[in-house]
Design a binder for these strands. Structure first.
Lengths: 215, 215
DNA sequence: AGAAATCTGTTGTATTTACAACAAAAAGGA
DNA sequence: TCCTTTTTGTTGTAAATACAACAGATTTCT
């Protein structure tokens, strides 16, 4: 577990908690670690969960597959980030999406309802968890902003602008390849690829693989 | 304020709090009431807020308007429901969407960060607020599910199925007229209207105004 | 290095959607 | 009630997107 201390220390859930106290918190939250191979499912739609997941290592996608093999990617989770939080609290309903490891990943499960216990870290954990839920909320609202755009070009610009803003630079990498980006924005890959090139011809941006520069 | 006690009592934020204690809680949260006329803005994109809003009366839309007059409705809020919660907690960023009264409305503003104060209701308010944030989260994820559908027909079916499930009946009312539903699903109204009629012809459903029956 | 697999861009066609304009129906106000 | 406004459905055309198929480039694996 020591191996992952730096991840935990810098995760938003453990903000303000001293490094040598983290072990205590993990115990208090009945932490359990598990590893997943590439392509393995961590959660499946329909499940009910009582633990939030903190990604220690790897990358996972929150996604949905329909009968016809269409894939929609709701969100990408990188190491240090938390997922499942909205479905783990108290009386919640079943998960809506599958959660899949897109590469070998290690996950730490934390019994979220234990943070209401009267332990030493109660107050700070509660605050952190609040911020986490609120932030996830804002991320989802932002994604809805992209998805509400009517054309592929507008969706791309909306998404890329956000990424640029997040990177605080017109030059940045995105965490998706073309197929994943298309599944994330709910458009056809080849049509999207085509549109990207048109945007480049129009002088809006340039790109190479997953590196983009907005003009 | 007495006039609205039944709304407060049944709102999720005040769940588990006794009717005669509500006044105390309101005081603790520095409650402030304000009324808005139809079409008036309650919040504007870009603002930073420290109070959550609880709708006492009326209806509001969380929406965005772009340069060309296109409108996107993110969500509808009915009386008793809370909005702005993701942007009011501690260190949050600016609001992304406008919040507009679609009819005459009365709003109660509550200083959300006061629930961390050590008052008598601290624990239950915290729990309630957690559930609220988690639920809003799930609602947004569900809407993303609708918006990820590739065709207008699929979007409609996804949305209407959810409404039917929520009503626990194949027969139900939706809270939008055609234009609003189109703005909610980010499609063209006339094309959507057309698609609805085709779906009726295909025997998938029938409808009259905002009443629908799924087959 | 060489082979296999994956990723990206390109093109043409079919389908879907947006847009605009209008008519009918319903709701609201005087 | 009549008039006005709003809402909904309808149609045709233009534009955008999905779909399929393929070629070149890049990465991965042995």
């Amino acid at each position: 577990m020591k191996k992952y201390l730096h991840i935990l220390k810098s995760s938003k859930l453990f903000a303000g908690i001293d490094e040598n106290e983290i072990e205590d918190v993990l115990f208090c939250l009945s932490a359990a670690k598990r590893s997943y191979g590439k392509g393995e499912y961590i959660f499946r739609a329909g499940e009910c969960i009582s633990a939030v997941a903190l990604l220690l290592e790897g990358n996972v996608h929150i996604q949905r597959e329909d009968y016809w093999g269409n894939l929609s990617i709701l969100n990408k989770v990188s190491s240090g980030e938390v997922f499942g939080e909205a479905y783990a609290v108290s009386d919640s309903s079943a998960i809506l999406n599958n959660v899949v490891a897109v590469e070998n990943s290690t996950v730490l499960f934390l019994e979220v309802n234990h943070i209401f216990n009267d332990c030493k870290f109660h107050a700070v954990l509660t605050q952190n968890f609040f911020s986490l839920l609120a932030e996830k909320n804002r991320i989802l609202a932002q994604k809805l902003g992209h998805m509400s755009q009517r054309t592929t070009r507008e969706k791309l610009l909306s998404y890329l602008s956000e990424q640029s803003l997040k990177a605080e630079s017109p030059s940045f990498d995105i965490p998706f390849n073309r197929q994943q980006l298309a599944d994330f924005l709910a458009v056809d890959r080849s049509a999207m690829s085509n549109e990207l090139c048109k945007m480049r011809d129009d002088g809006l941006l340039c790109f190479n693989r997953n590196h983009f520069i907005l003009k």
